[in-house]
Design a protein around this nucleic acid. Sequence first.
DNA 1: CTGTATCCCCCTGGATACTG
DNA 2: CAGTATCCAGGGGGATACAG
Lengths: 132, 132
Amino acid sequence: METTAIDDSEAIVGDLYSDACPCREILNLVASKWATLIIGKLEDGPLRFGQLRRAISGITQKMLTQTLRRLEQDGLVHREVLVHMRPPQVEYSLTELGQSVTEPLAAIRDWSEQHLPDVQAARRNFDALQPN
Amino acid sequence: METTAIDDSEAIVGDLYSDACPCREILNLVASKWATLIIGKLEDGPLRFGQLRRAISGITQKMLTQTLRRLEQDGLVHREVLVHMRPPQVEYSLTELGQSVTEPLAAIRDWSEQHLPDVQAARRNFDALQPN
DNA sequence: CTGTATCCCCCTGGATACTG
DNA sequence: CAGTATCCAGGGGGATACAG
C-alpha cells in the first residue's frame, strides 16, 4: 500500500495545533488590553458601569463599553439592566463561563509574577549585548 | 502634606500598570498572533528557521524573524548560529524560562479546547438576539 | 538558508462631543 | 449614569524585494 502518497519531505513537524489552534481566539479575546482587568475586577462580584470605570483607572468609556460588549457577546459577562432604577443602572457580572476562565488567567498571572524579573533581566542583558 | 507633589506627566500610566498585574506584559508578549505557535512548535525540540517557517503555515519571514527576536530578547528562546555550516544555519530552542511558560499556555489551550464551543454558541445566540 | 528593508493596509485604542 | 458617534494616531502584520 502506498503510504508515501503524502508529502514525503521531513519538513512539516506535526501540525497538531497550528492554524486551527482555538487558544488563539481566546488569547485575542483576553489580551485585548482591558479584558483581563475587567474580568479581574468582576471576580469579586457584580459591578456597575461607573464602578468599573472608576476601578480601572485610565480606561475610557468607549473601551469599557466596547470590551464589555465583546465579553458579553462571548458569554463571559452578564449584563443586567436595572430598569426600575432612576437614573438607570446597569450591572455587570461574570457568568459561569467567565468564572471558569479566571483559572487559566490566574496561571498566567502567577507565572508573570514569578518570572517577570527574569524576562526583564533578559531584556536588559539583550540590550547590553546587542549594539543596535 | 501636599498631595500635589506628583510630577505632572505620567501619573496615570504608572498607576494603571501598578494596579494591573505584570501579566499584561506577558499577555502582550504571548498574544502576538505568532508567539504561541512558535513556542508550541519548539516544545518538541529545536528547529531551524526554515523548519519553523514550513511548520507554521501562513507566517511570513518578517513575522517569524520579528517574533523570534522578541522571544529571544525576553529570554524565552535561545538562538544558536551554526557557524561552521555551509550554507549557514540557525537553530532555535526554548530556554528553561521558555519551557516554563508552556505550562500557563497549556492552561489557556486546555480551557480553549474545552470551552470554545460555549463561546461560539454564545456568539451565535448574541447575534441572533441582537438584530444589528 | 537566514535574514533586512520598504511600503502600506487595517485594526486597536485614545480623545472628545453628544444622547437618553 | 450609561452609551453612541466621530476623528485620528500608532503599531501590528502582510507582500515584496534585496543582501550575506
